[in-house]
Design a protein around this nucleic acid. Structure first.
Lengths: 356, 356
DNA sequence: TTGAAAGCGCTAACAA
DNA sequence: TTGTTAGCGCTTTCAA
């Protein structure tokens, strides 16, 4: 059986020592080789169809060439474009992506992260971070480079990439205020996610800066970023005390609209609703959703670039595959982990209308 | 620096030889060890926080513990649930998923597959197979186990898992016929995909079995599974020669509906439209889409199970994580690669109505 | 049942 | 510049 050719085979064929062959095939090495030898070795490798064994190389170099990507639920439409961005940048830097889906289960998060570490991932991109996730907190002290996406833990301490949700929410509120809405409700996402808190705080701040009163009964919490959670939460909103609703994300917005409709309240004639994320197809639902668009692909790409930097001071590869991040990065403390917040854009569609 | 403990450390601590430690930690081995020794070793491992190095193990066993998953475009809403199904089954069998997105580019498909092979993947799940993809055809002779999902190459020869699209399309046509439609058009997907051909042939067969004439001008081809392609294709449909349209998939259906609307044709009052896949949110678009639902998660899970079988006669792990596939599997030839077609379900919503 | 020894394929010191 | 040697951490014959 013709086993896969090894470096030794190549060396023999080229009439050099194995180590020389290794050097010849490995570009950018201090102890270089003659152009002639290098060519001979490369020719031999080509003829033999030599492909280096990444396992053996990893064992020696202690670099697996693999990065772990941990997501809460790939079926959530926000994530796939982010994962694509991550994947594109990482592959072009020569790193492969091990995908792990936790199904929103903290226990599976722990298991998967442990497994990923055991497999000697060179870094982790984590999109599952609940605010108090012990699994993610443990990454703080770890030698393993990690970057959080979309969700971060309380207290920070880890590099973080997301959309500028605060600005996005502020824009949504401003839009509603401009339409004449005075009593604006907020249906949040789960309280254990930083995303929720960021949007909630921005919502409150926006009301204040518009000189609108904060009515706590107009803030209700969804227990998940799903339409079902949106429906349940909407039912807890007080009667007709509001004319507009800022939803924690698009799924919640759709649930809210469905619940309103069931209660005989029309959107946008009676109540305006805004979403967040600009998920695929929300431009075609009924009514087309006014929402805050986030640069998903760019978020993934930026996270990947950040991780590449952490893995090796920018070296390793070109890390191209996307434009440079255009967001604002906190540079308050030179030693503080970077926080990259990418710009959002309010997309006005038909789910918002002037207040009656 | 306290490096990660090695098996040797465990052995030393337990007072046994490294090989013994290896045997003790490795369950289900022929040459077993004393219960006492095993316990001592396990204790030592626990105390030291020993985690075996998968790289070293791979080098020795020639098993990487990794499977490659190649997708055309993760942003396509059909795929994420399939990938989830794959991921769940594979992880529970102890295999990790390397994700590769080709962005619908045959060249990137070739590069990624080569890279995945170089990385010693134990198997491949491929969702990118164009009908004549040379990259995928090369897998035919390869020793590397591979399973195709959703799309297969002409001539077959590789294990394949998909929804029973023919039955689904037949159901859609039957539904329209039952509503009184006689002139039914079909907007297909790209002709280089088996998915398209399967649905197209089923469409024709369904017309025949309903004793309806085949009007070739009523079949137009979209060049992608996107709304834009659907819009463009719909514009090539002849005036008012039809009362219903079977779309190649949901995205195309939505494009078709948009194009119709722009031309002043209402759906479903003037023309009924059906989709395929039952993507997220198509129940909330305007009008809610009548479509053929496919068991995405189950498709992924079945593909993963098939791959596990190929990798090692079903051994390796329990491969649980989903119900057994309920679809029909071609068992014509015992040696022929399995073809698993999972049942579809027609979901009737508001985009279809009785013919005028 | 356990220990000894070899080696998976590669890279990195060190020597020549 | 090239060759020698060693060894990454593990599994697996082969002996004892």
């Amino acid at each position: 059986m013709p086993r896969r050719p090894t470096l030794r085979d190549v060396a023999t064929r080229a009439g050099v020592h194995q180590a020389t062959a290794s050097r010849a095939l490995n570009p950018a090495l201090p102890g270089r080789v003659t152009a002639a030898t290098a060519e001979r070795v490369r020719a031999a490798a080509r003829e033999l169809g030599y492909v280096p064994d990444p396992t053996a190389r990893s064992l020696r170099t202690r670099r697996s060439g693999v990065v772990g990507v941990v997501v809460p639920d790939l079926a959530n439409p926000v994530l796939p474009p982010i994962v694509r961005g991550i994947e594109r940048v990482l592959w072009s830097a020569g790193l492969a992506c091990l995908l792990a889906d936790t199904d929103n289960d903290p226990e599976r998060e722990a298991v998967h992260v442990a497994e990923l570490r055991a497999r000697r991932c060179e870094g982790l991109i984590v999109a599952t971070a609940a605010r108090t996730s012990p699994t993610v907190s443990d990454l703080l002290g770890a030698e393993l480079p990690a970057v959080l996406v979309t969700r971060e833990i309380d207290g920070g301490g880890l590099p973080f990439v997301a959309a500028d949700d605060a600005a996005g929410t502020a824009a949504a509120v401003a839009h509603l205020v401009a339409l004449g809405h005075q009593r604006i409700a907020h249906v949040t996402g789960p309280l254990d996610l930083s995303t929720t808190m960021t949007r909630l705080e921005a919502f409150r701040a926006a009301l204040v800066s518009a000189s609108l009163p904060l009515v706590e009964s107009l803030v209700v919490h969804g227990d998940a970023f799903t339409t079902a959670a949106g429906e349940r939460a909407a039912e807890r909103l007080p009667g007709r005390a509001f004319t507009a609703i800022v939803a924690g994300n698009d799924m919640i917005a759709l649930g809210v609209i469905a619940a309103l409709r069931r209660a005989g309240v029309r959107c946008p004639e009676d109540v305006s609703v805004t979403g967040h994320n600009d998920m695929p197809l929300v431009d075609r639902v009924d009514p087309p959703l006014t929402t805050v668009a986030i640069p998903q692909d760019e978020i993934g790409a930026a996270a990947a670039r950040l991780l590449l930097e952490r893995i090796d001071g920018g070296g390793g590869a070109d890390a191209s595959g996307g434009a440079a991040p255009a967001g604002r990065a906190d540079t308050a403390d030179a030693d503080a982990p970077p926080r990259v917040l990418l710009p959002t854009r309010l997309i006005v569609r038909a789910s918002t209308a002037p207040a009656r």
